[in-house]
């Protein structure tokens, strides 16, 4: 079947099998390898992207379901004015080590901060509780998102 969606503002169309998962469409048909997968069972959140502004686990959505919808991935976070504060926050606070879970964490972080611009650290912990990081023990990720909350965003990208 033919599927068309808008990814990070660019139209992407491909002929695919109906069973294809959105994460594979993003990685293989759109060629955006920043979105990873880690678990198969919707537990790890490594594959998190936005569909119509909602953070979702793209291993548990069919590409066909996103037909005609807006998708945004980690590659779409950086704007003309530079990195999004969540990206900068992860650098400032050492919020990543191997970097594998990072894109999913960033997408959740931005989505969350758009809804809760001044969160407590406990709220941040809850926001990322559906995502697994094996390197950082989460403390610095929480600090990074908190850093981002305290630094205004200049880009227009929003969930």
């Amino acid at each position: 079947m033919q599927v068309s969606m808008n990814i990070n503002g660019e139209p992407v169309t491909a002929d695919i099998e109906a069973r294809k998962l959105l994460v594979h469409f993003i990685r293989e048909d759109a060629g955006l390898r920043g979105t990873h997968w880690g678990c198969d069972t919707s537990n790890c959140g490594t594959c998190t992207v936005w569909v119509d502004g909602e953070a979702v686990k793209s291993c548990t959505v069919l590409a066909a379901q996103a037909d005609g919808h807006e998708v945004r991935t980690v590659e779409g976070l950086e704007g003309a004015d530079g990195l999004d504060p969540v990206q900068q926050g992860f650098i400032e606070c050492h919020g990543l080590q191997c970097g594998f879970c990072t894109p999913g964490m960033l997408m959740t972080a931005r989505w969350f901060l758009d809804r809760n611009p001044s969160p407590t650290k406990d709220e941040i912990r809850e926001a990322i509780s559906g995502q697994i990081c094996r390197c950082t023990g989460y403390k610095n990720i929480v600090d990074a998102i908190h850093w981002a909350a305290e630094h205004p965003r200049t880009n227009e990208v929003t969930a």
């Binding site: 919707s42 909602e54 953070a55 686990k57 959740t108 809850e126 509780s129 559906g130």
Partner: peptide
Amino acid sequence: IADPLVRNR
């Protein structure tokens, strides 16, 4: 129930 992302969907 589950986590914030699963609850979104």
